[in-house]
Amino acid sequence: MKKIRLWIADDHLIVRKGLGHIVGTCPEFVVAGESEDGAGTLLAVKKKNFDLLLLDLSMPDGGIGLISQLRSSWPALPILVLTMHSEPHLAARAIQAGATGFVTKDAGAEILLVAIRTVAAGGRFMDPRLTNALLFERLDSSEPLPEMLSPRERSILEHLARGANIKEIAAQFGRSAKTVSVQKSRLMRKLGLENNVELFEYAKRHGFGLL
């Protein structure tokens, strides 16, 4: 039987070794390698020597942006997020960015292994404890959701939530400050926000600026 090759991306050595031990209990899995930051993970993906990426959200150069980058360049790559963050809106953003599964680090080993098997087989997996929270959060919400924003608008909101100003964001995107300012105004209209205070409060509620 061909083994499923896993790549573990996490900035904590003890976590990587612990995950390796859990995975090692199953004969169908093998750890192909490890990385501790986004740059190392990108290099590993370029070599294409594994079948599934087990990805932490909080490591350097990681987060939602890394998921988007990976999904854009390698659309078929199975990405299972394993994180200490249990906020439902963050799980939703990770899936929207391109993750194929989401599990919290305090989930049991059995749940993690089921998640790996599911994602490796081409399916999708959400931590069972977050499923209901995600569903009812969206049913109960009366405000516009981030999903209605374009990818660029969500990226601008993320940078603003992290404290970047218009000029810094413009330099990051290679656009003029005027263009970014117009895009900021557009996203605020879409979300029904009147000022920067409301913008930052909205961003915090929906998990922007955390990663």
Results as ranks from 00 to 15, higher is better:
Met1Asn: 09
Ile4Trp: 04
Ile4Gln: 07
Leu6Thr: 01
Trp7Gly: 04
Ile14Gln: 07
Val15His: 04
Val15Gly: 04
Lys17Thr: 02
Gly18Met: 04
Gly20Arg: 01
Gly24Tyr: 12
Cys26Tyr: 14
Pro27Val: 02
Phe29Asp: 13
Phe29Glu: 00
Val30Gly: 11
Gly33Cys: 14
Ser35Asp: 08
Glu36Cys: 10
Asp37Gly: 15
Thr41Pro: 12
Ala44Leu: 14
Ala44Thr: 05
Ala44Asn: 14
Val45Gln: 03
Lys46Pro: 13
Lys48Cys: 12
Asn49Cys: 11
Asp51Lys: 15
Leu52Lys: 02
Leu54Glu: 12
Leu55Asn: 07
Leu55Lys: 06
Asp56Ala: 11
Leu57Arg: 02
Ser58Asp: 09
Ser58Glu: 10
Ser58Lys: 08
Pro60Arg: 06
Pro60Tyr: 03
Pro60Ser: 07
Gly62Gln: 13
Gly65Ser: 05
Ile67Asn: 08
Ser68Lys: 14
Ser68Arg: 09
Arg71Asn: 14
Arg71Met: 12
His85Ile: 13
Ser86Ile: 10
Leu90Glu: 01
Ala94Arg: 07
Ile95Ser: 06
Ala97Pro: 04
Ala97Glu: 00
Ala99His: 01
Phe102Glu: 05
Phe102Arg: 07
Lys105Leu: 12
Lys105Asp: 11
Ala107His: 02
Glu110Gly: 00
Ile111Phe: 00
Leu112Asn: 06
Leu112Ala: 02
Leu113Met: 13
Val114Cys: 13
Ile116Lys: 01
Val119Trp: 03
Gly122Gln: 07
Phe125Leu: 01
Phe125Ser: 06
Met126Asp: 08
Asp127Phe: 02
Pro128Glu: 05
Leu130Glu: 04
Thr131Asp: 09
Leu134Tyr: 11
Phe136Thr: 13
Phe136Glu: 04
Asp140Lys: 05
Glu143Asn: 10
Pro144Ala: 15
Pro146Tyr: 00
Arg152Gly: 05
Arg154Gln: 15
Leu157His: 00
Glu158Val: 08
Ala161Gly: 00
Gly163Leu: 04
Gly163Val: 11
Ile166Asp: 13
Lys167Ser: 14
Glu168Ala: 15
Ile169Glu: 04
Gly174Ile: 06
Arg175Pro: 02
Ser176Gln: 08
Ser176Gly: 04
Lys178Val: 03
Thr179Arg: 08
Val180Ile: 15
Val180Gln: 11
Ser181Cys: 08
Lys184Ala: 11
Leu191Val: 03
Gly192Met: 13
Glu198Gly: 07
Tyr202His: 09
Tyr202Asn: 05
Ala203Trp: 12
Arg205Gly: 10
Arg205Cys: 06
Gly209Ser: 07
Leu210Cys: 13
